[in-house]
């Protein structure tokens, strides 16, 4: 039995604490926005926030999340109104869409820490996220657009 706080909700779960957080999210509590792409920390499809940091849930044991705050794509914003979600919509980024929640969760940490990311900052933060459809350029432009929206909001 472990206790997890996911998207500000407490869960008491009957799972092996060694289970990767990814499968607890997907199989146990049916939060399927977090994706399985490789299972070995290579693709970024499974990125979630653990106490605000981007982690790969496929290699993060559920036990590591006990007593911490987990945020998934489902909890990123109340109404799909995070600047990244708005920018992603504006630039119509997704093709198949499978990688996108991981991309956004990685980008969200970057954007919180860096109000005006350069190309290099974006590469550094996003290099671990694969998009097989090749929407990278739109993702990068959407991150810049979101940063701009965020700067304008805080003015």
């Amino acid at each position: 039995m472990i206790n997890l706080n996911i998207n500000n909700k407490n869960y008491e779960l009957e799972v092996d604490p060694d289970t990767p957080l990814l499968w607890v999210l997907r199989d146990t509590i049916q939060l399927v926005g977090t994706k399985y792409g490789c299972g070995v920390a290579q693709c970024g499809a499974c990125v979630v926030h653990l106490n605000g940091e981007a982690v790969r849930s496929c290699v993060t044991k559920a036990s590591r999340a006990v007593g911490q705050k987990v945020v998934t794509i489902e909890g990123l914003s109340e109404n799909n109104d995070h600047p990244l979600q708005k920018a992603w919509t504006e630039l119509d980024v997704p093709q198949c869409g499978y990688c996108q929640s991981g991309q956004i969760m990685s980008a969200a940490v970057l954007l919180r820490e860096n109000k005006n990311p350069t190309d290099q900052d974006i590469y550094n933060a996003m290099e671990g996220n694969i998009c097989r459809c090749g929407t990278y350029l739109r993702i990068q432009n959407a991150i810049k657009l979101a940063a701009e929206m965020q700067r304008n909001e805080s003015k």
């Binding site: 794509i73 990123l76 979600q85 992603w88 997704p94 929640s101």
Partner: peptide
């Protein structure tokens, strides 16, 4: 489907 994709809907 962009909104569903961006909010992690099944």
């Amino acid at each position: 489907e962009v909104e569903k994709i961006l909010t992690g809907k099944p």
